[in-house]
């Protein structure tokens, strides 16, 4: 089914973009400006460490590479030939860039090799720990893979609820009900979902932000109609709710003791399926679903508690 196909986009950035985006790391270019269009596609920073001692097995050229005090001291103990022998294989790999931290002066051989291989050699006055932290944080944001999903994302009591279901099942109408009850819309109809670490963050594509389509009324502007509090820029997705016509259900979950999950980009999100039928106020049910999730997070499982109670009573009957 097209819906289950995930068209994941993995962003990448050039070293030039990296230099301007990660301003917190205070990076400056020493040499290798011809290589500024090299690509970075992984958020983790690779400290050269043992690679310098001739162990290059785990090097990924599209990562950001870094040398700190330890590596510079080690290199400074080597003769000029040994330095070249240690460093050349790394530059030959065409790594994205190499950062020297703590404002340390890189050995001459390193600067020459960087220049010759067009590898950007960067410097930061900050200590290694901070440089790694700022770069990883920044790159995790920029390089977060994303997909687009059909559905509606609403913040209900602080719980990010992703409503899914076929066209015209009433997702937008339910979202409108929720907005009237002072909950906040993130996106209607199409959601851009980014994966950051093990969390999923949803937002509206720029063009659709704050807009909603209601059959018969057309496209409406939520913030103009309901004020800015009715909108939220982005929200972590905590719960997936599948709205389905009641007649499509074979066995509705009548107990709620089995936890179900759905995966988006490999991240498991708790999910429930709600039958849609006349007389069922979906907005109301979503409020309850969100509150119930909050209870579960506090360790309160209403359904399980009830089942245990009932089992105890059965025992006493014997």
């Amino acid at each position: 089914m097209p819906d289950s196909q995930e068209k994941v986009t993995y962003p990448l950035i050039t070293v030039k973009e990296f230099l301007t985006h990660i301003s917190k790391a205070e990076l400056t270019l020493i040499t290798g400006e011809n290589g500024l269009n090299r690509k970075i596609n992984r958020p983790r920073v690779q400290k050269l460490g043992l690679i310098l001692a001739g162990f290059p097995e785990f090097i990924h050229k599209e990562r950001v590479h870094l040398v700190g005090n330890t590596e510079i001291c080690y290199l400074n103990k080597l003769s000029s030939e040994e330095k070249i022998k240690s460093l050349k294989p790394i530059f030959d790999l065409q790594i994205s860039c190499l950062i020297v931290t703590k404002g340390l002066t890189p050995p001459e051989e390193m600067v020459t090799l960087a220049k010759e291989s067009d590898t950007p050699l960067l410097s930061s006055p900050l200590r290694t720990t901070f440089v790694i932290q700022y770069i990883s944080e920044g790159l995790q944001d920029i390089l977060a893979p994303f997909v687009h999903k059909h559905g509606v994302l609403v913040d209900v009591f602080g719980v990010g609820v992703l409503m899914k279901g076929g066209s015209s099942i009433g997702k937008s109408e339910t979202a409108l009900d929720l907005i009237v009850r002072k909950h906040r819309l993130v996106s209607d109809d199409i959601i851009e979902i980014r994966k950051k670490g093990e969390i999923l963050i949803g937002k509206a594509p720029d063009i659709a932000m704050g807009r909603m389509e209601l059959r018969g009324l057309g496209i409406i502007n939520i913030s103009e109609l309901f004020g800015i509090v009715a909108l939220r820029d982005e929200k972590i997705i905590d719960l997936i709710v599948n709205l389905q016509p009641a007649q499509d259900f074979e066995d509705v979950d009548r107990l709620g003791i089995d936890e179900k999950f759905e995966e988006i980009m490999g991240v498991k999100i708790p999910s429930i399926s709600l039958p849609v039928a006349s007389g069922r106020n979906i907005a109301n049910l979503l409020e309850i679903a969100a509150s119930n999730l909050l209870l579960k997070r506090k360790g309160k499982y209403s359904a399980q508690e009830f089942v245990i109670k009932q089992r105890d009573r059965l025992k006493h009957r014997k």
Partner: peptide
């Protein structure tokens, strides 16, 4: 870049 539901106008 984007995959949209063909029944969704905003999409």
């Amino acid at each position: 870049q984007i995959c949209a539901d063909a029944k969704s106008i905003l999409g």
